[in-house]
Design a binder for these strands. Sequence first.
DNA 1: AGAGAAAATGTTATATTGTTGCAATTCTTT
DNA 2: AAAGAATTGCAACAATATAACATTTTCTCT
Lengths: 164, 164
Amino acid sequence: MPETPTAFQRGHDHDRCVRHALSAAADHCREAGLRLTPLRRKVLQAVWRSHHPLGAYEICDALVAEGDQVLPPTVYRALDFLERNGLVHRIASLNAFIGCNQMGRHSNGRYLICSDCGSVAELPPDELLERFAFEAGAMAFEARSVRLEAVGRCAACAAGTTGP
Amino acid sequence: MPETPTAFQRGHDHDRCVRHALSAAADHCREAGLRLTPLRRKVLQAVWRSHHPLGAYEICDALVAEGDQVLPPTVYRALDFLERNGLVHRIASLNAFIGCNQMGRHSNGRYLICSDCGSVAELPPDELLERFAFEAGAMAFEARSVRLEAVGRCAACAAGTTGP
DNA sequence: AGAGAAAATGTTATATTGTTGCAATTCTTT
DNA sequence: AAAGAATTGCAACAATATAACATTTTCTCT
Ligand SMILES: [Zn+2]
Ligand SMILES: [Zn+2]
Ligand SMILES: [Zn+2]
Ligand SMILES: [Zn+2]
C-alpha cells in the first residue's frame, strides 16, 4: 500500500488527497479524545491544500480570503494543537508547516526540502532513525524526536519543469 | 583522537577549547583563501565562547559588551560568511548558531539538542547520513546537505545537575 | 605609488515571524 | 442552571531577519 505523499505531486487528485487527510485527522482526534474544532480544521485544510509548506501568516491570509477573520495568535494556537498532536510538522528551516502523513509516529521523520521550489516531501520514518535514538540513549541523551532534513534540489526542479 | 566537542562540557578548559577552534578556523581560512576579518573572528569567538547556541542578537550584545558597536546586519553578514564556509552551523529550531567542529565536512551533521538547558552537541557525520543522501538520490533528489536533529534531554539535565 | 574594481562594513529603516495578556465565548461537568 | 475548563478574539508588543544605500577597506593592475 503506497504512502500518501505529503508534498504535492504532479498529476494526482489533490482534492481527494486533502479530503483523505482531513477525514483521517478527524478519525484520529475522535479516537484520541481531541477536539478538532472548526478553526483547527480550517487551518489543517489550508496546510494540506498548499503545494508548499505554509507559513503562519500565509495561513492567516488563506483563511481571511475565505471570509474568516483570524489573527496570528489564533493561527499559532491552532498550529500548536496540530503539531502537538502530530497532525502537522513545522519545518524549522523554512518557518513553515506541512501536513503530516504519519499520524501516530509523529516524533521521527525524514524530509526532502527543495531549495529551488520550496516543496517538501515527507518520507516515512525508518529503522535508521530509531537506531540513532538508541545510540543517543547510550550516550545518556534521551531523544524525544529525531528528524532528518535533507536540503537540495527536487526531481522536478532538476528536470527544469518547475520555476524557482 | 577524540573529537573536539562543540557543546560545552563540564570540567574542561573551555578557554583552551576556544583558542583551538579559532586557530583551526584561521588555518582553514588561510588555506582556502578566505578572509577571516577581525569582525568575523570576533563573531566566531563569541559563538565558541558560549555554552549554548547563540542568537544573532545575543552576539550583538556580546560584541557591544566588549566595546564594539555592531548592529544586526553586520552580525548576520558575518554569520553568513561563517556558515557558508562551514565554521558555524545554524540550528534552525533554535534560531541560533553554534561553532562547527567538522570543518570541511560541513554539509552533513548530527545534533543533540537539549530542550531543558538549550545545549547542543554536534556529532560527526556517519554512514547513516551518507546512506540517506544516496537513497534520496535514487528518488532523483539531489541532496546538498543532510542534517539530523534530535531533540530531547541531555545527560546533565537528566541527572538534575543543571537548572532548566 | 596610484587609479579603479571588488569586498567588507556602517547606518537607517523596514519586513517577517512569533508572543503576552486579558476579555469574551463556547464547551463540559456537576 | 452554575461552575469550571478549554477555546477563541483582540490589541499591543517582542524577537528575528533583511533591504537599500553610504562609507570604508582591501585587492588588483598599471
Ligand atoms: Zn496531494
Ligand atoms: Zn523543487
Ligand atoms: Zn569547550
Ligand atoms: Zn540539558
